[in-house]
Amino acid sequence: MNIAIDIASWVLLTLGGVNLLIGGIGVLRMPDFYTRMHAASLTDSMGAILVILGIMLQAGLSLATVKLGAILAFLLLTSPTAANALAVSALLAGMKPRTGDAVQRTNHEADA
């Protein structure tokens, strides 16, 4: 039983780590702000869910698990809201998402 829990939590933690890395690489490599935002939200959602679930399995039934659950709930509420606020302020400042015809432009100045 213990080994099963260990394996499950190891799988969750590793998958979470992989998600974090993918999101991190995406934030660095994606071509414009809105696509980068998409990559960042991967780490905030899947990454956070998997990692915290993995830790929760290790913590077992304790106060720590309750706290971890609260942390996960707050993260899942706040980070999409922060992303929304950020996207709104970018749109407000007149930043256009990069669309098909913009792909030809090679330099980043176009993003403004």
């Binding site: 979470g16 974090l20 999101g23 934030v27 702000f33 980068r36 935002m37 960042a40 780490t43 905030d44 990454g47 956070a48 990692v51 915290i52 942390i71 993260l75 980070s79 922060a82 992303a83 950020l86 302020s89 970018a90 400042a93 930043m95 993003d111 403004a112």
Partner: peptide
Amino acid sequence: TVYDRVLAVNMFGTKTVL
């Protein structure tokens, strides 16, 4: 752009939590 930086800071925050 400045928004990329805000995005990075926000992402940095959640990574610190984890």
